[in-house]
Design a protein around this nucleic acid. Structure first.
Length: 562
DNA sequence: GCCGTTTTCGGCCCGACTGTTTTCAGTCG
């Protein structure tokens, strides 16, 4: 669609709005008629017909037409940065360019500069963009686990520059999206020229744009590195700028519409009156949301999925905070082959964090490389009992991370499993079974009387390995039915269960647990990602069992195995 | 493509930068 009319086209936005309507819809879309589909917010007659056609035939005629009109080689051209739909259409009609190879030849033959509106500079820029395609194509995305450390390092370096009051990671990274196209950092400084002069010191390559407030850096060695866009604003503009650069685009559009309804306009500098230009709010995000009659909306919820309406109605769940967590229920020690901190170190770290309860959960014996035998498990249990006496305010549960076999079988035997205080069960193998078997496998584990929680539900590694394919609704129903909790795994490469799964659980009585799955004491701080990921899935704090006071939590944990 | 008591057409969020212009179109975020 973008090829035909440009990404800003209203038709593109209409399709995006329709997508949000589909996502927000509760219940089975398949059962709806065209008329019923068209009644959904954002979906009109045309899109309703396409959806119905897809359910009935498995195809969409219009989509197939577009694919014929824009074959893959041509679509590839649209990935080149700086080459938009209008120029592309001209290149096709006037020079017959149908592929990246065609374009390269046309540039070498100096044909582009002959077209009105294009020149030598454009030719050179496109040539350079083609060279970097693959490294920096428009659709290249980096897993959050790679991007976040880079972003935090650059932001810290910028924050340390003179005359800088804030340097904040914004963009999709702040919203905790699983993959990001680039890194956006907003810097507050009254001396932008100083920042621009020094910015070269924090990255390998820098392009400062003409305005003197914007710089593009390339940082990190792997696969051509990451693009970091740095934007310097006046300190009093920080709030408006952070909203603007955090997005999402859909969220910002909705905010601006809201501003217009009040006779105001919102941009990256301020919320102000259209008539006269008086500034209403700009300094902090809270101020801007407040002026628009809204509570602060957590970045992780800013996806244009109805959060503004929910916030206005007071129906947005409170974002769970790290301070809400009273325990960590997925922790490894050196007993696991892949653990790097001793039992004593892990317990001491948990106590230092002020936790009231934790579960030590080393791998069950079925995990060949890293599993723990019965004998070693019993030995660990003895050490935990001894350690418990030194930590009267911290209840140490002896747990285990069980492996869910291809048919739902678990480690040891039921009697031995009943000896643990807490059982996490998780998939570590057989990722390629058909969905029906994966679903049955997960549900079988949930029905096991010793299993408290399913760990990293899909087993995915973001950007590296897809998770298992299973029936989300059936698994969530089983979670609500059995009382077996679902883990919110805080590790950035996992963030599992996925946010879409968490959102799907909204209408069900599913219990969650935010865990770090730490293999080293330095990883207990991962809770900061876990709480943000839970927020992204709109999970209310009370649905998260490890926010509960110890008596309630321990009672609940013990109930499953009676 | 969607939407609507300003309803079946004409609106739809905002601004910066670039390259090519000499007032603007295209691209991007």
């Amino acid at each position: 669609m973008t090829l035909e009319e440009g990404p800003q086209s209203f038709r593109v936005r209409a399709y995006e709005n329709a997508l949000h309507g589909v996502r927000a819809h509760r219940g089975d879309l398949r059962a709806l008629s065209v008329k019923e589909l068209a009644a959904i917010e954002g979906i009109g007659k045309s899109t309703a017909q396409k959806i119905r056609e897809f359910f009935d035939t498995g195809r969409v005629t219009r989509l197939e037409e577009l694919r014929r009109k824009f074959p893959p080689a041509y679509v590839e051209l649209s990935r080149i940065p700086g080459l938009g739909p209008r120029t592309l259409a001209r290149l096709r009609s006037e020079l017959g360019i149908e592929s990246v190879a065609d374009l390269r030849r046309a540039i070498e033959a100096r044909q582009l500069r002959e077209l009105p509106g294009l020149g030598e500079k454009t030719e050179a820029n496109l040539a350079r963009a083609i060279e970097r395609l693959g490294l920096a194509g428009k659709h290249r995305r980096t897993p959050i686990a790679e991007a976040m450390p880079v972003a935090e390092r650059v932001a810290a370096a910028l924050a340390a520059l003179p005359d800088v009051s804030h340097a904040e990671v914004c963009g999709s990274l702040r919203r905790l999206r699983e993959t990001v196209a680039d890194i956006d950092i907003v810097v507050a400084s009254a001396a932008p020229q100083v920042v621009m002069e020094r910015v070269a010191g924090v990255a390998e390559a820098v392009e400062v744009e003409g305005g003197g407030r914007k710089a593009s850096l390339r940082v990190g060695g792997a696969a051509g590195g990451l693009q970091v866009d740095v934007r310097v604003v006046e300190p009093h503009q920080l709030g408006a700028a952070m909203i603007y650069f955090t997005g999402s685009r859909q969220h910002n559009i909705a905010l601006r519409q809201r501003a217009l309804e009040r006779g105001w306009t919102l941009n990256e500098y301020a919320l102000k009156e259209i008539a006269g230009g008086r500034v209403i709010a700009s300094r902090s995000e809270e101020e801007v949301y407040g002026a628009l009659g809204l509570p602060f909306i957590p970045p992780a919820m800013r996806e244009g999925q109805g959060e503004i309406e929910a916030a206005e109605a007071g129906a947005l769940p409170r974002a769970v905070a790290e301070e809400d967590l009273r325990g960590d229920l997925h922790l490894h020690t050196t007993y696991s082959g892949d653990g790097h901190s001793s039992l004593e170190e892990v317990v001491a770290e948990a106590a230092a964090r002020g936790y009231r309860y934790i579960a030590i959960t080393d791998h069950g014996e079925d995990l060949v490389m890293n599993g723990v035998s019965r004998e070693r498990m019993l030995e660990q249990r003895g050490r935990i009992a001894a350690l418990q006496e030194r930590y009267p305010d911290l209840r140490i549960l002896h747990g285990v991370e069980l492996n869910i076999g291809p048919d739902g079988g678990l480690d040891y035997d039921e009697e031995f499993r009943r000896g643990f205080d807490w059982c996490v069960a998780a998939v570590h193998s057989h990722f390629d079974l058909e969905p029906a078997r994966q679903t049955a496998r997960l549900i079988a584990a949930m029905r096991d009387p010793t299993v408290n929680v399913i760990g990293h539900l899909s087993g995915r590694r973001i950007g590296r390995r897809p998770g298992i394919d299973f029936d989300v609704d059936a698994v969530l129903d089983a979670a609500a039915d059995t009382g077996c909790a679902i883990e919110i795994n805080s590790a950035l490469p996992r963030l599992d269960a996925a946010a879409e799964v968490l959102l799907r659980a909204r209408d069900r009585a599913v219990t969650f647990v935010i865990s770090t799955d730490a293999h080293h004491i330095g990883e207990l701080t991962r809770t900061r990602w876990g709480v943000r990921h839970a927020t992204r899935g709109w999970v209310p704090p009370d649905a998260i069992a490890n926010t509960w006071p110890a008596p309630r939590f321990l009672e609940w944990a013990a109930t499953r195995r009676r």
